[in-house]
């Protein structure tokens, strides 16, 4: 049965509302499920395919060897090109792809161009996270018992790499680093851990 002419504008309006509501639902759906534990968060494309597996898991390079500032200041920092050349002056990759990737670093060093690494773990602008303070706390031997994010007890003091995995996950065993694989890095995670360890939860500790 054909709808009457009076019904037509009503149906059009209904259709428009449905489309808008559907759009909102889809946006909310994606934004909610793109966080862990659902794991739809995609890794950004990096200028050089850097495998953490080869460097950390196979060759046992410590996190703070490349991310130099992590035990000294707020930002962990990505290494300068010179830091890569420290080893890759002599070391070539085992495969053809690895060699071509290493060649990119050498070219960058010779032509004095910085490598534009894409940031993986990004906090909002109103959050000030200090890497140094957290590593100092978890590596401190004078504190007998520390607590993880889920309230589990950490009896012995950790080393730097173990501290990193608390929030960043097991980056050393990943070829491609995806955002938020360890913790969701939402405020709830921070506050949980701060409460477990009875350290300040005042807003101005992080928000300035």
């Amino acid at each position: 049965m054909m709808p009457s002419r009076k019904m037509l504008p009503l149906m059009v309006a209904g259709g428009v509302v449905t489309v808008i509501m559907g759009f909102i639902v889809v946006v909310l759906f994606i934004s909610w499920f793109s966080n862990p534990p659902f794991g739809l968060g995609n890794a950004p494309a990096q200028p050089i395919a850097f495998p953490h597996t080869v460097h950390v898991a196979e060759n046992n390079i410590q996190c703070e060897f490349c991310h130099r500032n992590v035990t000294k200041g707020a930002a962990a920092t990505v290494p300068a090109v010179e830091t890569c050349l420290f080893c890759h002056k002599d070391i070539d990759g085992g495969t053809v792809t690895a060699q071509s990737e290493i060649e990119k670093i050498r070219t960058a060093f010779e032509t004095d161009t910085p490598i534009n690494w894409e940031r993986v773990h990004r906090l909002p602008d109103h959050v000030r996270f200090i890497h140094e303070a957290h590593i100092r706390y978890f590596t401190d031997e004078t504190i007998p018992v520390k607590y993880g994010i889920n309230g589990e007890e950490i009896i012995q003091s950790l080393d730097v790499a173990q501290t990193c995995t608390i929030c960043h996950g097991d980056v050393g065993n990943k070829t491609v680093v995806q955002p938020k694989t360890g913790q969701s890095l939402k405020m709830g995670t921070c506050v949980d851990c701060h409460r477990n360890n009875s350290v300040p939860t005042d807003c101005t500790v992080c928000h300035k």
Partner: peptide, 14 residues
């Protein structure tokens, strides 16, 4: 906006 234990009136932007 709230009062923290250091005598400061704090504005939390977020």
């Amino acid at each position: 906006t709230y009062h923290n234990d250091e005598g400061m009136n704090v504005q939390v932007y977020n």
